[in-house]
């Protein structure tokens, strides 16, 4: 389990993450939702140790260091592959650095998405780059797979394919933390939703709880964000000068 306790992060005067308490157990598919700049990326970067932060983040009770960092993988829309390396080259690099790298899964997924093996990554299309980025994260042999907006630029069929493959290959011990704005697309298969707004966790709910309450994710999110359906008509009224 990854556990965040009172995690804070500021950039200058701006507080990007405020007092975040979070538990991410093994074997869950978790959606992380929030507007751009709400702190989704900052949270993931804190877990991975890319940035300094206040508070504590532990993995099974131990701080995240070189000893256990291989248990966490990361896919990002910024891409973290090596642009001049081929798919095969990446497999070699990952095999060398991550003892639990799954070649079977890697080559299986490469084949499924029909990605070229001997071409440097910079020559891939945006969609292919995203696919490859996620394939690496899934093949690393990690227990916790963090994905930050991994499908920006992929078409909908492509994403659907990906979701199905993801569900088909995940082992019961693997956890996925998926940050995305495609809430409706993923609402069918995530098991839990975490809502972040202005650096604070404003909602954390399992789909089972929502089912029991007889509501759905979109309603929950709208309620949490105090979304007002009359907002649009009110704005129009204000702009056109018509009295209500």
């Amino acid at each position: 389990m990854i556990e965040l306790k009172q995690v804070c992060k500021s950039y200058g005067h701006k507080r990007a993450v405020k007092n975040v308490d979070l538990k991410l157990p093994q074997g869950e598919i978790i959606g992380l939702f929030g507007e751009n700049g709400a702190g989704k990326t900052t949270l993931m970067k804190a877990i991975l140790g890319f940035i300094r932060y206040e508070g504590t983040i532990t993995l099974d009770g131990a701080p995240i260091t070189t000893k256990n960092i291989a248990r966490i993988s990361f896919a990002t829309s910024e891409h973290s592959f090596f642009p001049d390396l081929t798919a095969r080259g990446h497999a070699e690099f990952y095999r060398e650095h991550f003892p639990r790298f799954s070649e079977k899964r890697f080559y299986g997924l490469i084949e499924f998405f029909d990605l070229p093996m001997g071409k440097p990554l910079r020559g891939f299309s945006t969609g292919q780059k995203n696919q490859f980025e996620v394939i690496l994260a899934l093949s690393q042999g990690a227990d916790y797979i963090l994905m930050d907006e991994p499908f920006a630029g992929n078409d909908v069929f492509n994403r659907e394919d990906f979701y199905k493959v993801l569900l088909g290959i995940l082992e019961p011990h693997e956890t996925v933390l998926l940050s995305t704005h495609l809430i409706e697309e993923v609402s069918g298969f995530i098991g839990r939703a975490i809502l972040i707004r202005e650096g604070s966790i404003v909602g954390d709910v399992t789909m089972e709880e929502l089912e029991e309450q007889g509501t759905d994710l979109m309603t929950y999110i709208k309620n949490t964000y105090h979304y007002r359906p009359d907002r649009v008509s009110k704005a129009l009224q204000d702009m056109t000068g018509e009295e209500g």
Binding site: F74, T76, F81, P83, L121
Partner: peptide
């Protein structure tokens, strides 16, 4: 930092010296 952010991968390697 060019084309992609492969620095992310390098920074999270179990071998920090790499």
């Amino acid at each position: 930092h060019r084309v992609s952010k492969s620095i992310y991968t390098m920074k999270r390697l179990p071998n920090r010296l790499e």
